[in-house]
């Protein structure tokens, strides 16, 4: 637990990173909700209520997307900062196993990410319920599904970023993973000629967890989607752990 706390300390004391992460999660959701509320208050005929099920879904899916960017930022930092700052060898000479030094980065990064996501999600839920007006409020089931989607999408990317950054020892993975999530994976999914092979794209598997079928561009079972995501996370974790154990410190 002390090592996990140390990971949290290393990440959370990076002020610019924390400011950006808070802005991209809590900040964006809060600003969007406030703007929608003001617009509805000023002109209710043209602008519907800020809350309700529909707006909640929009907010939650925005959070999943931006939360993924934040997860990549935090994960890449957690995975690379010891080596980048030249401190890794000082941790190795304590006698702690390299495997442990790598693995504690995962819960450490999660403990930084989850509170931000949690607060942003609560903001979205509260707005969805309190400012629904005449629109239907989000159901418990919808809230639960959206929460699962946000967590699955962001945590898988967090784990991938930690492993990938440890493997390449650089925060260049931030650009690579954001490009993958926002463009490359979507281009691959759009290639229908790839057929069933598209199931192996993590973004396609994550989309399976979007409540409703609208986002599910590649049909697959929940088990298959889960398996694909676990394999992606495991592959990146294994690569990061392998290189952390093998590299010269």
């Amino acid at each position: 637990m002390r090592l996990i706390n140390a990971e949290v300390l290393k990440i959370s004391k990076r002020r610019p990173l924390m400011i950006w992460c808070l802005l991209l999660t809590v900040g964006v959701i809060a600003v969007v909700e406030i703007v929608l509320t003001v617009l509805h208050g000023v002109n209710p005929d043209h602008h519907g209520p800020a809350g309700g099920a529909s707006n909640f879904r929009g907010a939650a899916e925005t959070l999943a997307l931006l939360g993924t960017v934040v997860a990549i930022l935090i994960g890449a930092t957690a995975g690379s900062q010891d080596v980048a700052n030249g401190v890794f060898r000082d941790l190795v000479v304590t006698g702690r196993s390299r495997k442990t030094l790598f693995l504690v980065r995962l819960p450490g990064a999660m403990l930084v990410l989850l509170p931000m996501l949690g607060v942003a999600f609560v903001v979205a839920v509260v707005w969805g319920l309190l400012f629904a007006g005449h629109d239907p409020t989000p159901s418990g089931s919808l809230i639960g599904h959206e929460l699962v989607y946000v967590l699955v999408f962001t945590l898988v990317n967090l784990v991938m970023a930690v492993g990938f950054a440890a493997f390449v020892s650089s925060r260049i993975v931030i650009g690579v993973l954001i490009a993958w999530n926002t463009a490359i994976a979507h281009i691959l999914i759009a290639f229908h000629t790839l057929g069933g092979a598209r199931k192996f794209v993590d973004v396609a598997a994550a989309e399976h967890f979007i409540p409703g079928s609208s986002g599910d561009r590649v049909a697959m079972s929940t088990g298959a989607a889960l398996l694909v995501l676990v394999v992606w996370a495991a592959a990146f974790t294994t690569a990061g752990r392998w290189w952390t154990q093998r590299r010269d410190a």
Binding site: L9, K10, N85, R89, D90, L91, L101
Partner: peptide
Amino acid sequence: AIVEEPRFHPHLTGRQNLKIVAAAR
């Protein structure tokens, strides 16, 4: 041990840097 020049997390204080290594001990 100090190997080559001593390196630390520059964004942390001296005490916090020691706390991180102490956690590994």
